[in-house]
């Protein structure tokens, strides 16, 4: 599974990345968490608000930092 965290400058992006990595570890799923700051890629997903979380190419949330239970659900939906 491929998880991408879209965002370039906010501390919120780091927060989202950290909690996503924690969730992945807790669920022990095989997933890569990658930070994407390239504007072309971010806009390619249609996202204008950062941070955003993309799982397997699908935008799950944007413009906010979802809670861990939400992130868990995004991952479960894609398993």
């Amino acid at each position: 599974m491929k998880i991408e965290i879209l965002g370039s400058c906010c501390s919120n992006c780091e927060k989202l990345q950290r909690s996503t990595e924690e969730v992945v570890k807790e669920m022990s799923v095989a997933a890569t968490v990658e930070k994407v700051s390239d504007m072309q890629k971010i806009m390619g997903y249609g996202v204008m608000r950062t941070p955003a979380i993309v799982v397997n190419g699908k935008v799950k949330a944007m413009g906010r930092v979802p809670g861990k239970d939400e992130i868990k659900k995004y991952i479960q939906d894609e398993v």
């Binding site: 965002g7 370039s8 906010c10 996202v47 204008m48």
Partner: peptide, 11 residues
Amino acid sequence: CSCSAVPVFIG
């Protein structure tokens, strides 16, 4: 938020 100024502008 000012972090989104660039993507909003481009969008």
